[in-house]
Amino acid sequence: MAEATQPDLAVALGRLRLSWPTLMGSGCYGSGEEYAPFIDLAALGGVVLKSVTRHPRLGNAAPRLVSTPSGLLNAIGLQNPGIDAYLENDVANFADRPCAVIGSVAGFSVDDYAYVTERLAARDEIDAIELNISCPNVGTEGETFACDPSLAEAATRAARGVTDKTLIVKLSPNVTDIAAIARIVEAAGADALAVINTVRGMSIDVDRWTPRLGNANGGLSGPAIRPVAVLAVWEVARAVKIPIVGQGGIETARDALEFILAGASAVGIGTGNFTDPRVPLNVVDGIRDYLAARGHSALSEIVGKANPRFAGVR
């Protein structure tokens, strides 16, 4: 008896081919190595590495995390060794990863984005680049790029000019019209969009009269932001043709399917890994079962199916 054919879950983001439609969110997954004892990395579509900047960054003062209802507020502050030390000490370790390895670049000027992208993308260990133009936790500079259309365009164009590898641009939800930014970033040469980064937030200790985070404000992630993220994907999917990586509070296959039906081709999982490192496996298994039960042969068949004005390419 012939076995039933498994639905095809592979995804293309520009030139990048993912075996599974799951990317581990930048900053939540280290370099992947930290989670290797708990999950087979080959079962992941890819790992988006922790962001790297031109110069070393000490990071923000503690506390850097606060639990909030159904959410996690963080302000890490892009702690990283800087691109020189990163290339020298870290990148070689990524060579044997059995999933896609996506470098994440953060910056404080257009030139930073070009410089760090060029150096990082030149390494064979790196399969693609995510441009983090939306970090909310480094003063006003970090997120400015995702919130100002001309800067978002300039940073994307600068990075596009220095690499042929897949360029994913990570957008901020902290804007009035995310679709307008998405259109501009697409026109500037992005191959894909990651939607969304964290939502700005704050928690205050009413006994001590002070914000709970060392950095005062932070970025909110987890199930609390999922409806915000699904709507952002819905709106962006009506505005651009390039694929979208939908992310924000995904913990189950049904959560992921909301994003896919809104128009995402793949999903990002970040905070969900902190509940259980097997969440990415459960998401893939659940999506496969869902497609099989409905008689679909490929994930691409259902992308954007809840979104009547889906403008993307399946």
Binding site: Y29, G30, L65, S67
Partner: peptide
């Protein structure tokens, strides 16, 4: 401490420590 990942991935649970072999920037 309250951890998020507990496995060294998220850098959320830090303490100021003498500059050392941790391989992270020094201030």
């Amino acid at each position: 401490e309250t951890f998020a990942c507990g496995v060294g991935a998220c850098w959320g649970c830090v303490v100021p420590h003498a500059a050392s072999s941790v391989g992270t920037p020094v201030g």
